[in-house]
Each structure stands twice: as C-alpha cells, then as structure tokens.
Design a protein around this nucleic acid. Sequence first.
DNA 1: GTAAACGGTCAACGGATGTAGAGTGACTTC
DNA 2: GAAGTCACTCTACATCCGTTGACCGTTTAC
Lengths: 197, 197
Amino acid sequence: MPASPAHPVGLPREERRRRTEAAIVEAAREQFAELGFERTTIRSVAAAAGVDPALVMQYFKNKEGLFGASARWHVDHKKLSEATLDEVPRTALDDLFAGFEDPSRRDSAIALLRNCLTHEAALDVMREEVMCEPQAMVAATIGGVEGELRAGLLGATMIGITIARYLLKIPVVVEASREQIEQIMTPVLQALVDPER
Amino acid sequence: MPASPAHPVGLPREERRRRTEAAIVEAAREQFAELGFERTTIRSVAAAAGVDPALVMQYFKNKEGLFGASARWHVDHKKLSEATLDEVPRTALDDLFAGFEDPSRRDSAIALLRNCLTHEAALDVMREEVMCEPQAMVAATIGGVEGELRAGLLGATMIGITIARYLLKIPVVVEASREQIEQIMTPVLQALVDPER
DNA sequence: GTAAACGGTCAACGGATGTAGAGTGACTTC
DNA sequence: GAAGTCACTCTACATCCGTTGACCGTTTAC
C-alpha cells in the first residue's frame, strides 16, 4: 500500500515526482526487507506503489539501482567515535536499537541485512559501512595489539543480536525488551572491549 | 567438479546410484553455499555433477528437496548438554569451529546459513535445530529467570561470529586463528552465562 | 536367453521476469 | 494559446528456469 496515492494530477510536477518516487522506494523497502532481492519483482513493487513497472526503471535505471536507493543503514557513528572505552558498549547498543525504532529506517536496514548474505552490493555496504568503519573507531579506542580483533568481535556480536532479533526472530530474543538486553549485554561487552578490570 | 566421474558403466546398480547421488549433492552443496538458493539452478548443479538436469528431479523431486538434502547443520549437542556452567562457553566455541573444519560439513553448514535469511526452509532448520534446541539445553544449565534470555543471547553471539567469519568475511575476524578467538571470547561468554563471579 | 527394472538422456512446455521503445496526455513556458 | 517538456503507460521482446513425459541402453531376475 503506497503511503500517499501515487501520481495525483493537479500537483506541480516537482511535487508529483517527489511523491511517486517516495512511494516506489517505500514499497521497494518493504518488499526487499520481507522477501529479499530475488523474490522481489519490479512488477510487484510497481503494483504496490500504484505505478507502471516501466516507470520504476526510468526512476532507478535498474533493479540494482532500486535496491541501492532502498537498502541503507542510517546510523552516524559520531557518538561511537567520541565514546570512552567504558561508554563503547552502551553506545553501540543504543545506536543499534535506535536505528530499528523508526519503521522506515528499520525496513531500510532490514532490507540491507536480509540480503547481505546473498547479494553482492548489500554485502559490500554491510562490510564497509556497517562493520569495518565503526570497527576502526572502536579499535582506536581500545588500542593495543588485540584492539582490532576485539573491535571486530564486538561488531560480530552486535550483528548476531540484530539478526537473531529482527531476522531469525528467535522467540526469547524477540520478546525481551530493549532494556533487558542492554542490561545483560553491557557488562558482557565491557569484558570484551576492556578485559582488564 | 564431481569428486568421482558420474555414472560409470560396469558398476553394480546400487553403487552407481550411490555415487551419482553423492556427486549431485556435493555439487549442490557447493553452489548453494556460494551462490545461494535462488541463483543456484538445477541446470548448473547437474552440469557440475556431469548429469542431466532431469535426473536431479528424479532423485530429489524438487529444487526444494535438493536443498533439503544439501543444507544441513551437523553438530550433535551432546557435549553441550553435559557441560557444566563453566564449560559451556568453551564447548559451544569448540562445537562451532569443529563443524567448519571438514570441507564437506562446512559447505553444508554454509549453504544453510547463507540462505536462512531469504529461504523459509533454511530459516526453519536454523531457528529450531541450530538456535532453539541448544538454547534450551544451555538455559537449563544456567537456570534462573534470565536463563532463557542469556542462552538466546549466547546463540546470537555465536551466530554473529560465524557469519562475520565465514559469510561476511570481515578481514580481522577471518585472519584471526581459532585459538585467538576462543581465548578472547571464552571469558566474555562466561560473563554472559554466569554473571555472578 | 528373454523380459522386466532401472539409471540416465532428450526435447520441450509453461510461466515469470528484467528491460526497451514508442506513445499519450497533463503541465509548463513563452 | 501554442509548442515543448515531462510524468507516466502500453506493448512486447528475449531470456531463463523448474519441471515433465517419452525414450534409450545397460543391468538384473527368472
């Protein structure tokens, strides 16, 4: 279902374009997130957006282009880069959950996450922007010879929790509140990033 | 490449059947593991096994049947169920790495893992056999009201490390040795399953 | 040795999908 | 108000894939 009725006549061109493009991206996000890249078809996205399939191609050129515009990870790592060693676990968990509370950002992130094991483009974004980039920041905060590996394992753990909760939907992990998970995992992740003390 | 030349004439029927079936499953495992379910075709599996596509259907009925015979998680949880609270982290990590050392079991597990986000059947196996089953054992060992959730988060962490190392191939996590990861993660996971002490 | 059983192949159907190109009617610009 | 631009649609092509049914030749069973 498109958020706003597509292509309503009587509006200025610019506004019209903006709305239908948004309707297409929203429909694409939902389907990429729920069905994955392969089982999402241009035709079904167009239908959900109330638009002709050919229009999708004009706007995004490719199915690949549509995917690139739909699957994104919206987290700025500013807070993480400024966090002290003690604050890293809590900050990482907060950033993670925050990104999954707004439904549109959530769909976008899930679209990326769901396809990162079977789709090259999604894998690249995932590896670089979601894993390696913040990993480098955390590694700098941790320091030492093991800093890089510990930061990598922190990222791996975060991804594991995200997948278990939002993709695999493991009952226990789904039903737990954000606060419960943070309460349990914060000291655990502190033992990971700061093994002294 | 099939391990043994397919359909060699002159052999007893039973042996012939066994060999070609094994060649098909091996080719399927490799392709499902590398390309995922959708991008793996019956035709390409048959070609890699040196066999006609129609034969694959006769042996496994469906593409679904072929996938079910190829994607499996070969770990018995006996050791895990017998482990004391102190031994749980080390046992879980050992079981995990052991399952990825034999190439054929590894392909089989990766085939399952790679598709568990986009394929219903893979998701079911993953959720039940790989996550929930061992989770119940660990939960019993941990005990208490939080036992279930802690066990679930342990499983999530393990999956995260597996995905980071064998699927996403995050450089730091790939290059680290099994021992390095075990050495870092064992105390961390102990803080997860046994928060006292 | 003859007939059934079985491993294996061949050719083809039916459907779905990404994509291209020509066309249409409303809005914009002068 | 006429010409042009632009959002949008229609139709169709080419390809590819899972799946099927008939067929062939070797091995088994009597």
